[in-house]
Structures are given as C-alpha cells and as structure tokens.
C-alpha cells in the first residue's frame, strides 16, 4: 500500500466513470458514470489525507464534500429525468437534444 497505488486506483475509477459518462446515451446510466468518477475522487482524497497530512482534518472534510456532491448529483439528476420524461417521454441524451431543435 502506498500513496501512488491508491491514487492509481482513484485514477482508474475516474477514467472508467468518464468512459461511461461519455458513451452512455441513457441519462440514468450517464449518472452512474458520474458516481464512479466521484468514487475515484473519494479514494484520492482519503489517500491524500492518510499519506500526506493525517494530522489535519481537511482531507476528511474533502471526502465529506465529495460524498455530498454524489448525493446532490443523484437527486437533481433524477428530478431532471422525471421532468424530461414527463414533458417529452424521453430518457436518452440524444433524443433530448434532437427535440430541442
């Protein structure tokens, strides 16, 4: 276990999530990609706290921030999907973009 390995794990999760967020057409699947990316951020922040400055609580606060961002993204994402589905019966990003024109 070392800082580099944890950071590498965080980077891997971030990239897998980025791939999902870029490729998926369904908005809910896209949000899953964003969750994975934030998971990577959490691992990175926790590792930075543990290996660089464990005496300061700021690293922990950063993790709290990432976890909150995850919850907000999820709630707003589902609300947007609900509003979009109600007005246009779509749940895919491409269809939503087409109908706008």
């Amino acid at each position: 276990m070392s800082l580099e390995l944890f950071m590498l794990l965080g980077a891997a999760l971030l990239c897998v999530g980025l791939f999902g967020a870029l490729t998926q057409q369904s908005i809910v699947m896209l949000m899953m990609g964003l969750e994975l990316m934030l998971g990577g951020v959490i691992v990175g922040a926790a590792a930075a706290w543990h290996y660089i400055a464990p005496a300061a609580p700021d690293g922990q606060v950063l993790v709290v921030l990432a976890v909150t961002a995850m919850a907000l993204e999820m709630a707003i994402g589902f609300a947007v999907v609900t509003a979009l589905f109600r007005s246009r019966e779509v749940d895919m990003t491409d269809m939503a973009a087409e109908l706008k024109e």
């Binding site: 971030l14 980025l18 791939f19």
Partner: peptide
Amino acid sequence: MIHNKRGAAVICVGVFVLL
C-alpha cells in the same frame, strides 16, 4: 445504448495515462 465508443475510449485512456 452507447455513442462514440472509440472516441471516448481514446479520451479515457489518454486521461488515465496522463494521471
């Protein structure tokens, strides 16, 4: 239900290598 798989893969591998 995916689009632009190849471009996204290139971007993600690039980001990972960079990181």
